[in-house]
Write a protein that binds this DNA or RNA. Structure first.
Lengths: 115, 115
DNA sequence: CTAAAACTGAAACAAATGTTTAAGTCAAGG
DNA sequence: CCTTGACTTAAACATTTGTTTCAGTTTTAG
């Protein structure tokens, strides 16, 4: 059942209305339409937006997040959540490794010019 | 003595010529000019660009890098390098901490929607 | 029924980080 | 000298992640 308006989702997920529309355009969330062409979201929409924000903290782009969320059904089962967790965790660890590598370079004692 | 051309600096620092001009416009490096108005860089320019690339790996913006490099004289003394090392290291550690915080949230066991 | 609040798409704007293109100038080698 | 490759500025373009504005439409509460 799609009952939530743009501003409902915005309020529940903590982003702006324009961001909600943007995310729909980008395929991170999907919406039905009223007879008057207004968007109506299911209750999972706000959740997906929150997941998207978490993924953004990790450094994923909207395109990457779209692919991530593409694997998340409207009504996810525990296995879906688990897969998402693993992918997000792996991404975060990857970025952390990259930063550590940069840090190790900085600390290597070599001149910064020679990195 | 300023003898290096744009493409010299580009080659030595591993960035494109347009990036070298961009960095000069942004104040990361400075250049003299020939009588014919062409840029000529000192030997430290390529080094500064390399430092800038390291800082970018850490996630600093060009504006932040400008401020970082503003504290680096054309012919830096060991203390200058040390200060730069410390600032870069602190920034990297900060970003790593932020990622760890995100990772901890993800692993907290709470639903991703509730972060 | 009506007035206010929320919604619509399209397009312009914004900031960051460069790249590309155009038309023209300079420098270096033979 | 003269050709060729490198240089110049300015502006347009590209991408990302949205925000703002416009003019008009829909929904909702009273």
């Amino acid at each position: 059942m799609s009952t939530l308006t743009v501003s409902d989702v915005a309020r529940e997920s903590g982003v702006s209305g324009s961001a909600v529309r943007f995310y729909e355009r980008q395929g991170l969330i999907t919406a039905g339409r009223t007879s008057g062409n207004q968007r109506r979201f299911g209750p999972e929409a706000a959740c997906r937006v929150r997941v998207a924000r978490v993924a953004q903290r990790i450094g994923l782009s909207v395109g990457e997040i779209r692919e991530l969320l593409a694997a998340l059904p409207p009504d996810p089962e525990p296995a879906d959540w688990q897969a998402l967790h693993e992918r997000l965790t792996a991404e975060a660890e990857q970025r952390i490794r990259e930063l550590h590598a940069a840090l190790d370079d900085i600390r290597s004692g070599r001149k910064l010019c020679e990195l």
